[in-house]
Amino acid sequence: MTRCPACLGSFPEGDLSALAEHLVDRASESDSAHVRWLNQNVTRQKCEASELLPALEQLFAIGRGGLPGWIKGRFIAKFYGKAPHPFVVALQHPSRATLLGYVVEHQHFLRQWVRSCSFIMARTDERKVVLYELDNLNTEFGGLGPDRVAHYELLLRMGESLGVDRARVLSLEPLPATRRGIEGWNRIASEEPWVAALAAMHGLELIANRDLVNEGASMRYFDPEILEGSEITHEAKAFLREGYEADVAHSGEALDLVAEFARGRATIESVQSTFLRSIDLFDDYLMARLERGAQFEA
């Protein structure tokens, strides 16, 4: 069914007119979530629902790249467009404070990641989806022995290499935007169709997909040169390199699964709006990494 990308409200299948009416109504009440979504995704100029409709049709239109191509296009537009996300800009050649902001907020994100992926596994009957999630969880959180340490452990080691021990990292509560993200992703993973949750969560791994530059991204997640010299610690390199190596496969495989299992218009519409909601949460969450990093600036 058609969903509102700002609040995930539901409308009849294919009824973008109802969505347009809803967005205009909520914006006229100055609801910041809906105003923000319109400002960032469609137009800053107030208009009638009938005028908004063609823009919504265009935004949700799936082109030759299919649903995976649409997801990548929206992701690039939001994070790697003409004005890339400030966290990505900061990560090109990161300061100690930027990396510590990453450590503190991301450990909360990764703990939610386990819950989200577990919900997907619990709610699907598809064996290949379960196997994908098991592999992902081992890479991200469980680890596969001392030679293949989990992303979560590498994150904590990066923090330690920058002078903040894991006990302190684990003692810090998430910032409000991170908390809101966690709550939003928990809701998506537990309540939306599992294939929509799959797209909403694993689509976020596009952030570190270095191949996006071949599809229009204005930069990579970080300048790969930092993996060479002595600009960042050995542990920071290990953490960033792991994502750099893993996320091309993680995000690519997930999008293939989404393309395979998002069957029927109602499910595809749900995938699209849930993904748009997820990247808005992620946008704020990346800002929270910078906000936390500012607390570590000398």
């Binding site: 914006a27 006229s28 009440e29 100055s30 609801d31 910041s32 105003v35 923000r36 319109l38 400002n39 800053r44 100029q45 107030k46």
Partner: peptide, 22 residues
């Protein structure tokens, strides 16, 4: 932000100003 959505009016510096949201 220059958006014309919304309808919030608040007084700032003694002047009633338009904002799209709180």
């Amino acid at each position: 932000c220059d958006s014309t959505w919304g309808n919030v009016w608040e007084e700032v510096e003694g002047e009633r100003m338009f904002f799209c949201c709180r």
